[in-house]
């Protein structure tokens, strides 16, 4: 059992008024304090290289998609957000996705897909906003996910830097 000893109030405290004035003076001073509000659409959070936003697919310089639809991100995805169907192409890389859907409502932005990808084709972009009028519109298809490599450069550089810590040099390519 805990006995809470109440502090006996002094006369001026029991009179209320001095304490009220004290409170009023505090709130008055705070009116001139620095504002903490962030004006969201105009002032955005700064994204850095470690920002892990929504996953996006890399488009190479020659406008071909880097993804070969190997399905490793699909298998790695803990939220089952990714669905991939492959198809054949005439390019040297014979395979590309026919369908690549990420259900952004399921995606938990964990970055496992980025880690699983053997082709450096999916990266966590710095895009964080997610709003639409229907659930169906938030299942992003391949066209909504494509981003030129230049738009993802920051994150690609960061991932490469981190990978260098444990990668051993190899002649395999």
């Amino acid at each position: 059992m805990v006995i809470v000893k109440r502090k006996t109030l002094s006369f001026s405290e029991r009179l209320y008024l001095p304490e009220i004035v004290r409170g009023l003076s505090i709130t008055f001073r705070k009116m001139f304090a620095k504002r903490v509000t962030r004006q969201y659409p105009e002032e955005r959070l700064e994204t850095t290289e470690v920002t892990r936003g929504q996953p996006r697919l890399v488009v190479n310089e020659d406008d071909s998609i880097a993804c070969v639809s190997c399905g490793l991100c699909e298998a790695a995805c803990p939220a089952y957000a990714i669905t991939i169907d492959g198809q054949e192409t005439d390019r040297f890389i014979e395979r590309e996705p026919e369908r690549f859907d990420i259900d952004m409502l399921r995606c938990i932005l964990c970055g496992f897909c980025e880690e699983a990808c053997p082709k450096d084709a999916i990266y966590m972009s710095d895009e964080l906003e997610l709003a639409d009028y229907s659930r169906a519109a938030l299942i992003y298809d391949i066209e909504k996910l494509k981003r030129p490599k230049s738009a993802l450069e920051q994150r690609i550089g960061y991932v490469n830097k981190i990978n260098q810590r444990w990668q051993t040099p190899s002649s395999t390519s």
């Binding site: 070969v68 190997c70 890389i93 395979r95 053997p118 051993t168 040099p169 002649s171 395999t172």
Partner: peptide, 29 residues
Amino acid sequence: LDCPICDKAGECTLQDYSFDEGQGAGRTV
């Protein structure tokens, strides 16, 4: 090393036994 493209990936014994026995990186240049 085109397992991401290869249709056999996932039921390929070369993958399986490499994982069991093989070395992680090649030595040839």
